[in-house]
């Protein structure tokens, strides 16, 4: 019995190595977590604070600024100087409400359009010959890696009054005079749908590609028409892809700046652009911060909704 292993019930094992392991487990997240807290968490508290401040012609251009060496008195002065003035402005001035409504409306309409445009493409990709699919995915990904700014810029030459779209329509005799598309709401929708299309198509494709073909065949075998099989099997099973795609499109579109700025003209107000001009043109940092808070509140709703949908899906069938 000299070289055998022996197992016997007896003493409890020591906790030494486990404690070191736990230390490592805590240290590993500490670095990225700390970074995110400082550069992502903390800034939101600052935004909140500044949204309660007043603009000033100073550096930094807001007041009050906390005097860290002033003790309790400085703190109470600081807190007393904070107010909801900027939020009152947001409510009182119809411009901000209009911007919020336009942002939500554009995001909603664009998401619906993205589903209508993206679903057939994703479906076509998933049904394409297996050997062709990697190429199609790459073709879908290349625009995503290409500069957003450039892709939106490319539309200016097309949508302009004397642009290619008008020229083509005129040449085909479909219109008699050039139509103004650039600097309108439809131009924004075209730009947003164009820019976000890969974000809708790729998650949908991922779901549809994994879909078991025999499920559809089973539905057909059980007497469902092509359309019925699609509506009762394919569509419900692609819900996760729809939710993911909608999440990736809807929320960023609410805050979109480049598209409305380049294609929307001076009259279309969206929140991202309002924030930008309050900050850069008017140098009203507190109001810009208040707009950011408003945008956060608007975004929070959909985020919670999508997370719930995701959680419900993970819990299993309804």
């Amino acid at each position: 019995m000299n070289a055998g292993a022996r197992m016997k019930a007896g003493a409890r094992m020591s906790a030494g190595p486990r404690r070191r392991d736990r230390l490592r487990r805590l240290l590993l997240p500490a670095v990225p977590f700390g970074w995110l807290l400082v550069f992502f968490g903390l800034p939101f508290l600052i935004v909140l604070k500044i949204s309660l401040s007043d603009p000033a012609t100073a550096l930094p251009p807001y007041t009050p600024v906390l005097n860290w060496d002033g003790g309790v008195a400085a703190w109470s002065d600081f807190l007393a100087a904070l107010d909801f003035e900027n939020y009152r402005t947001l409510i009182a001035d119809p411009l901000y409400l209009a911007a919020a409504t336009t942002s939500l409306g554009v995001a909603l309409a664009a998401t619906v359009l993205l589903v209508l445009v993206g679903y057939p493409i994703a479906y076509g990709m998933a049904r394409a010959p297996k050997g062709l699919q990697p190429l199609l995915v790459a073709l879908m990904v290349i625009p995503f890696w290409t500069s957003f700014l450039i892709r939106i810029y490319a539309w200016i030459a097309i949508l302009k009054g004397d642009g290619l779209l008008n020229k083509a329509l005129l040449a085909l005799g479909l219109i008699a005079r050039p139509v103004e598309i650039l600097n309108t709401l439809p131009a924004i929708l075209i730009g947003v749908v164009y820019a976000y299309l890969p974000f809708m198509v790729l998650p949908l494709y991922a779901v549809l590609e994994r879909l078991d073909r025999s499920l559809i065949e089973a539905a057909r075998d059980l007497g469902a028409s092509r359309l019925k099989a699609f509506l009762t099997v394919t569509l419900p099973l692609s819900a996760p892809g729809l939710v993911a795609g909608a999440l990736l499109c809807f929320i960023p579109i609410i805050g979109e700046f480049i598209v409305p700025d380049l294609l929307g003209g001076p009259d279309t107000l969206m929140l991202g652009r309002v924030l930008w001009s309050e900050f850069f043109s008017n140098r009203d940092w507190p109001l810009a911060a208040a707009v950011a808070m408003l945008m956060l509140v608007i975004v929070a709703g959909p985020v919670v909704f999508f997370r719930e949908a995701e959680a419900r899906r993970l819990e299993g069938p309804p």
Binding site: P29, P32, F33, L36, L37, V38, F39, F40, G41, L42, P43, F44, I46, V47, I50, P60, L247, L248, I251, P252, I254, G255, E256, F257, L271, G272, L275, W276, F279, W285, A288, A289, A292, M295, L296, V299, V303
Partner: peptide, 25 residues
């Protein structure tokens, strides 16, 4: 942590930009 990790991906860029600027200031 998971929330902090996912949020910047969907957060509108103008908010990230503004909040970071205010942090640096």
């Amino acid at each position: 942590f998971t929330g902090l990790l996912v949020a910047p991906m969907v957060m509108p860029e103008v908010i990230i930009g503004l909040s970071l600027l205010l942090l640096f200031v």
